[in-house]
């Protein structure tokens, strides 16, 4: 066990280092964006003097390294600063949006992950059959379309023609849990369609990869049923690659939702991010980017730890 604790601690330390480097990159990138908030707010007609005065008021006139370290220092203490546009505390604004995004991602994950793994296991079991081919074709087609296209198709069919789900996923805190789920359904379906193919194909490939190994032959010669061979003998040994691709897709669900949120006018982090870039609301852009980065780092850490846990050699040392 101590070996695992050590490994996790190592990964965690590396994760923090990665986040620090990312914060620097984010800051530099935002710094390189053309135009700035004052110019965007004050419009074309503003004189250089008014822009300068506005900059001074917001602290935008300070040299970049000073602004970076102030930002980083505050960030570490949990102070994300204020939005330039709405003057609201970012921690409050982001908290609500992040919650919504995570809600959407969770709904999608709860549908997508079991679906993908089940489809993958079945595809491995009935490999090269009609079912296998059909699943491959369907999932590959759905991944080949851009997500906004999938989103509009779903709106057209399920909202417009059939009227089963609302086309706009406007949720707020007053709604009950099931009402929220109902309104989130379409974006969640969209995300599911986009990410199932990856996970399903990896599950299938990882299992099939193991079917030539001697312990699978042994299981067959023990007269076990094919389903049991796949589930009990192949799947546990195929977990590491499956976990990795599942977690990567979860990160995509959180981070990659920008387009989907915009299409469904879903009040999540992605939409906020897009709006803030448009209005040069630097603190919001930076904070959002950092949250996205953190999601990736944390989920990858989770993937590493789970992969390690799925290896009996590490879990049960000699």
């Amino acid at each position: 066990m101590s070996q695992i604790v050590k490994l996790v601690a190592q990964r965690l330390a590396l994760g923090l280092l990665t986040l620090f480097i990312i914060s620097l990159i984010i800051f530099l990138c935002v710094e390189m964006l053309p135009g700035n908030f004052s110019e965007a707010i004050l419009g074309q007609a503003a004189t250089p003097e008014t822009v300068a005065a506005f900059n001074r008021e917001l602290g935008l006139d300070l040299p970049p390294h000073e602004r970076y370290f102030t930002w980083l220092f505050n960030m570490v203490q949990g102070d994300f600063g204020r939005s330039l546009a709405s003057k609201r505390e970012l921690s409050e604004l982001l908290g609500y949006r992040l919650e919504n995004t995570l809600f959407l991602a969770s709904v999608a994950a709860v549908i997508a992950i079991p679906l993908a793994v089940t489809l993958g296991v079945l595809a491995a079991l009935y490999r090269d059959s009609f079912y296998d081919r059909a699943v491959n074709v369907v999932t590959l087609s759905s991944i080949s379309f851009p997500e906004f296209f999938v989103a509009y198709i779903l709106i057209l069919i399920l909202a417009q023609n059939l009227g089963w789900f609302p086309a706009i996923s406007n949720i707020n805190d007053e709604l009950g849990f099931w009402e929220k789920i109902y309104r989130t359904a379409l974006p969640a379906f969209t995300l599911t369609l986009v990410c199932v193919a990856h996970m399903m194909r990896m599950t299938r490939a990882a299992i099939i990869n193991l079917l030539a190994s001697p312990y699978i032959e042994m299981a067959r010669l023990k007269g076990l049923r094919p389903g049991r061979i796949i589930l009990k003998h192949a799947l546990p040994n195929a977990l590491a690659p499956i976990i990795n691709v599942v977690v990567l897709n979860m990160a995509y669900l959180v981070v990659g939702v920008v387009l989907v949120e915009v299409v469904f006018v879903y009040p999540g982090l992605g939409q906020l991010f897009v709006d803030s870039v448009r209005s040069r609301d630097i603190p919001v852009v930076q904070a959002c980017s950092l949250i996205f980065a953190m999601t990736y780092v944390l989920l990858n850490l989770l993937a590493d730890v789970l992969s390690i846990m799925s290896n009996p050699r590490l879990l049960h040392p000699r």
Binding site: S213, Y215, P312, R313
Partner: peptide
């Protein structure tokens, strides 16, 4: 060593 499943 190869014919026993390492996971069980």
């Amino acid at each position: 060593a190869a014919a026993f499943n390492p996971a069980h």
